[in-house]
Amino acid sequence: MLSALQNPRQAAAQLLNFGLILSTAFMMWKGLSVISDSPSPIVVVLSGSMEPAFQRGDLLFLWNRNFMEETKVGEIVVYNVKGKDIPIVHRLVRKFGTGDEAKLLTKGDNNVADDTELYARGQDYIERKDIIGSVVGYIPFVGYVTILLSEHPWLKTVMLGIMGLVVVMQRE
């Protein structure tokens, strides 16, 4: 650690190394985003409205392309609602019409009523463009770290600090 400070060449290399790790992660994220055509190809479940299928902290992989067929009833989709920043993961239960203008209605498996109440004021249905992906893959629990991080912000600082220290202390 101290030697790193004394040797500027090594310090620079370590800094670059740290940058490389961050940019690799970012590139992989954006790459996945391009492949799946979704602005957020991996999401973490934040609520229990789809239980028992999904619990809080589960990781979902999204796919937003329609190769063979349109997004259809029964699919679990992630959608955005105007005026709300957190996307919602619910099942598509009704579809009226076809194409981009089709009127879609969603419902959480664990909810009694459909999502009309969750939509914007005066909005009865969502459209295909509101959907940022259909759930295709599932890994349980792995995303719980992000829930912990957002609920306890000080953990973020601690983690970043530890990561920085580890990278700086590595010699190679």
Partner: peptide
């Protein structure tokens, strides 16, 4: 071109 779910059920595995 219209489809609506009229009935559904969740069948869990004993493990769930």
């Amino acid at each position: 071109d219209n489809e609506a779910v009229i009935w559904d059920t969740i069948i869990t595995s004993p493990s769930a």
